[in-house]
Design a protein around this nucleic acid. Structure first.
Lengths: 231, 231
DNA sequence: CGTGTTATTGACGACCCTCAAAATGGGTGG
DNA sequence: CCACCCATTTTGAGGGTCGTCAATAACACG
């Protein structure tokens, strides 16, 4: 898993083995775009990013969210062309590497290859879990599970989880979870009524999570046949 | 993408660089199981396999289907433990490699690393597409899209697509696509009534697909707002 | 302070899930 | 070879969840 210490190790390894080109990106800025040739992988040193998959027929979906320690651009490996758009959700720093240079460095530094493969494996695991969430959980539980995972991701990186900034609109959350924005909104008010989340005094974009495990309990409860307590 | 020629190249490469341990598996036999330590990757030289993701709470879902040329066991890379069960759906031959030996060989043979990464990239692409299918398509179109992709997978491997053996129950298809077995059944009868698929004289387990592109047209039509022609 | 985007909430309807029954086919033993 | 059994599939009827449409409210921006 991604942990604070593990991220620092990887960063040090990258610094010693290669000369990363650092790049500051701002909210809304594209890291790369679907369709352009795949040349670089990007290591997120800070920031938050969304990865949007594009189909030929125009459908688009947010398939991943990336934070410090995650890699961006893996979707370009399969076909030599990026399959997704990657967009910064706030200011962040990226370390970019030519893919061929990275592979060459991996030949010298086995630990580098291990780190890269773990990142790829982690991405596959996240995809599996997303699919299972969408296929097996009702809408409310899906939102709860989404928030739970977001909080865990922040926690693993040593960030505060009692007050998190989603940086996604209800429509984007719904797009990612396979439901409409209205359903997202209703789920959030339900969770808030159940005291599993809370909105700060002003604005409903940020969310406070008093008890992370409570969200997971809610998910497990909705699996237990009978809907969760309270309507 | 996976193509017949590409598979042969990879197989030759594996043979020259390593001494794969060959293994014949039969329908229903487990290739590996979730929870056991990750040691080997398995290259499918022939056969058909299902990959079943297991959650701690007991939920399970078919997250992937593998054929000749695909790799099995990638789900173990992230945590050093397999995250899924892999089960043979009919008789097939696997070439198994110790992961560490494979990595060592990759250091000598860059082409081997490229092949491995492409396989990983392909798996990520398939996961993205599964997620998008579940999140953006109505049930009928999801089934049509599923059959379309299955047919394309067989086609890319030089197998006949006019008569394919699914080897999955309706319940398993539904589990994979996020719907109930009844919905799968109804979707299949609809597609059959529309002449997009046909059942052979005896048994409804095998499916004939007269026109592969017709299935994709059906998917596109159901995206165009108004439901497909015919009810 | 005004305007446009985003979010909330309600009413209604459609799609799909649930429950149930019948039919088909594969497999086994007589 | 046939009869039987059981898993799988089909098909129907009804209900619940979530999508659609719409109006209102809250917020962010200049």
């Amino acid at each position: 898993m991604v942990e604070q210490a593990h991220i620092a190790d990887t960063a040090a390894l990258l610094n010693s083995a290669l000369a990363p080109s650092r790049r500051i990106v701002h909210a809304g800025e594209a890291v790369y775009q679907a369709g352009i040739g795949f040349t670089h992988l990007h290591f997120a040193h800070s920031g938050a990013f969304k990865v949007v998959n594009l189909a030929q027929d125009g459908r688009e979906q947010i398939v991943g969210l990336k934070f410090r320690g995650d890699w961006l651009g893996l979707d370009g490996i399969a076909n030599g062309v990026y399959a997704c758009d990657a967009v910064a959700m706030d200011t962040g720093e990226l370390w970019s590497f030519r893919y061929d240079a990275l592979l060459a460095a991996c030949a010298q530094q086995p630990a580098l290859l291990t780190a890269l493969h773990q990142a790829m494996g982690l991405q596959m695991a996240q995809s599996r879990n997303s699919l299972m969430s969408v296929c097996t959980l009702p809408a409310d539980a899906r939102v709860a599970n989404f928030l739970h995972e977001w909080a865990l991701a922040l926690q693993a990186r040593g960030l505060r989880t009692d007050q998190i900034a989603l940086r996604l609109t209800r429509a984007e959350i719904g797009n990612h979870l396979g439901m409409t924005l209205e359903t997202v909104s209703r789920a959030l008010t339900l969770l808030s009524r159940m005291q599993l989340i809370a909105f700060p005094v002003k604005g409903r974009r940020d969310i406070a999570i008093p008890d992370i495990d409570g969200l997971d309990d809610f998910v497990q409860d909705s699996l237990a046949g009978l809907g969760p307590v309270l309507h």
